[in-house]
Simulated assay, not measured.
Amino acid sequence: MIETFAALLVAHVAADFLLQTGWMADNKRRALPLLSHAGVVLATAAIATGQPAHVALLVLVGLHALIDIAKARIPAARGALGFLLDQAAHLATLAGIAAWAPELWDTGLWAAAPPIVLQVATLAAALVLVTQGGRYFVATLMQDIELPVPALNAPDADANAEDAAADAKGLPRGGLVIGVLERAMIFILIAAGQPAAIGFLIAAKSVLRFGTVQENRAASEYVIIGTLASFGWAIAITLLCETLRSALPPLEILPPNP
């Protein structure tokens, strides 16, 4: 079951965060964008599990579409909380399908692949979820927080809001790059077994960024909230990824011959 869940998770991340276009995401009240996204969900799930045709995947696509329809039509489902609830619903669906049809992986085309294949795929999916998922989460969270400082630019919806608001004269989309890089570094540090080093990352960012808004309390709090949200997302997702990877079959790397 755990291999099936991991494969479906890889497919979900690819469908929602890599292959979903803005047109699909913004027009799910319309049939064509919704069906297009559903087709992507089906294709990624079939490829990830190695199942060209299986009724469980059709059920998965149907449930995925229902969740997306609900999110598009319920005003309360928007914003950061809506994003978290949407992803939690999708993950619950993946777990349900994996429990119902645990044989998806074992009877798929990749069943004979070495364990490292699924391990690496899970790591890659987690990295995308940490960086791109975190980008959307932080941006939607900060959009709900008003920054009453006329001198500062409003954050770009695609950027990491805590950095975009920190300096109106900063590099274009600099906040986006900073946010992606910091979350990627957190992911690498935890995956490498060096979580204590995250403290140095926080200290470095404090010195470089918080000093630019230290005379403005509103801007300082804005930056701190966004930074904590970004770090918190990266740490939580990476720890969940490591928990999942620990449940997958071991890599079975043999020790060198004496």
Rank of each mutant, 00 (worst) to 15 (best):
I2V: 11
T4S: 11
A7N: 00
L9Q: 07
F17A: 04
G22V: 01
W23K: 10
R29D: 12
R29V: 13
L32A: 11
L34A: 12
H37I: 03
A43W: 14
A43Y: 12
A43H: 09
I47H: 02
G50R: 09
A53I: 10
A53V: 14
V55K: 12
L63D: 09
A65E: 13
I67T: 06
I69L: 08
A77M: 10
G82L: 06
G82D: 06
L91W: 04
I97H: 07
A99W: 15
P102D: 03
P102V: 02
T107L: 09
A112N: 11
I116V: 15
L118A: 02
L118E: 04
Q119M: 09
L127C: 06
L129N: 06
R135C: 08
F137E: 08
L141I: 00
D144V: 10
I145W: 14
L147R: 02
P148F: 06
D156Y: 12
A157C: 00
A164G: 14
A164S: 15
L171R: 15
V177T: 13
E182F: 11
I186P: 08
I186D: 04
F187W: 10
G193V: 06
P195R: 01
P195C: 01
G199Y: 04
A204K: 04
N216I: 14
Y222K: 08
I224N: 00
I224W: 05
G226H: 07
L228M: 09
A229F: 01
A229N: 01
G232M: 07
A234F: 10
I235L: 13
L248A: 00
E252F: 15
L254T: 11
L254R: 09
